[in-house]
Write a protein that binds this DNA or RNA. Structure first.
Lengths: 207, 207
DNA sequence: TTCATTAACTTAACACCGTTAATATAATGA
DNA sequence: TCATTATATTAACGGTGTTAAGTTAATGAA
């Protein structure tokens, strides 16, 4: 049996090489810069070899993000311990912003592109996907804030709260990624904007 | 002189045909769906003809958006009359959201893509661009709110305020365009989310 | 050891894309 | 009438993701 094991090991080895090469291109230059032929060149295989390991380019990059997004999950993990719901909310927002700025191309693909809901997405729905876990954490925090009567009494829908807070936070990152530096605006720093937006949102929702 | 006038008329005619064909494709299917050859087919010219009227694909679509974005400017126009700064802020946000949902592909190109700051952009900087005017309106409203002491006393930077408010509003639209419908979230309606986010922001910034 | 089978990999090709060079056609002004 | 100019086209280049067909090498059975 050792022989098919070695084969499997070899397979995994070049699969990893592909992912590593793609990751480097993707992180530095984004989705379009990752071309099958460029990956092939850097790992010194032909482009078609990649298709022996990944269904298509989309599957490749999706897998890439799946792995890398663990850092978002970890950031959320270390924030989940905060006992005060509103303070936890603030930390969730800040961790989310930090991730987006550290991995702008990952962020763009995960949260700024239309992802078709194919079978694969539905299959892994509800567990394992870091953004799902992230949303769950956010949702629970909102629920807790409601239950402890920390928010305005008319705010009773945790999903609505979560989505509004997420939207505001996402907006900070998304604008920074897409538009920051355009010369017709005197840009304020990401940190300032993020802090003000998140604080304003929490403040504005408070009882 | 009537002959060169007729020529100019003809030129403009097919230029408009190009723009119309491109607009239909763009509004329905987005940037990538607009291919030079597809435009050429629908207007029954060869693809290269388009290059006699537009420098390249980017210039074409940019011109498209420039024209269509007038509706955003108009929406802002009709909102600028509101005398109460905070109410005006709210209306600005709602108008912005409405535009984004009505023209998602325009919105995506204008606010969710990296636009390189080429010469052309710098040339028309500061006037005419609806998003510039929009930002100016937002900025003035923030300044007025500060001057009238409607906001928390530590909030003294109108640019920072404008950018935070813009970010929150943008987030509502951007998430809706990119992610709405993903099955792992129980989505709330755009109207609800927009209203809550905008109100929370204004509320959270108030004195 | 020989040999058919199978996995791994490559080359060639397809159908697209944006864009450009070279070319043909038709209208214009002298 | 004829050279010039504007207009439009065909053919091509270099690029993309992807697939079909073919080659090479390793494997397990006889």
């Amino acid at each position: 049996m050792s022989i098919s094991e070695r084969r499997e090991r070899d397979r995994l080895k070049i699969r990893t090489k592909i992912l590593d090469a793609a990751r480097e291109l993707f992180a530095a230059e984004g989705y379009d810069a990752v071309t099958m032929r460029r990956i092939a060149d850097t790992i010194e295989y032909s482009a078609t070899t990649i298709y022996l390991h990944f269904k298509d380019k989309d599957a490749l990059i999706r897998e890439l993000c799946r792995v890398d997004a663990l850092s978002l999950a970890q950031a959320f993990q270390s924030v989940a311990a905060e006992p005060e719901p509103l303070e936890r909310l603030r930390k969730i927002g800040m961790a989310y912003v930090a991730f987006g700025i550290e991995h702008p191309n990952h962020y763009r693909l995960m949260f700024m592109s239309n992802r078709k809901n194919d079978e694969a997405d539905l299959a892994e729905m509800g567990h394992g996907k870091p953004e799902t876990d992230g949303y769950a954490l956010l949702l629970n925090t909102c629920r807790e804030a409601i239950d402890r009567q920390l928010l305005a009494p008319e705010l009773t829908d945790p999903d609505l709260l979560a989505q509004a807070f997420w939207a505001a936070t996402h907006g900070v990152v998304a604008i920074h990624i897409a538009l920051y530096g355009d010369p017709w605006i005197e840009w304020r720093s990401l940190e300032e904007t993020a802090e003000l937006t998140i604080n304003a949102m929490i403040n504005g929702l408070k009882r």
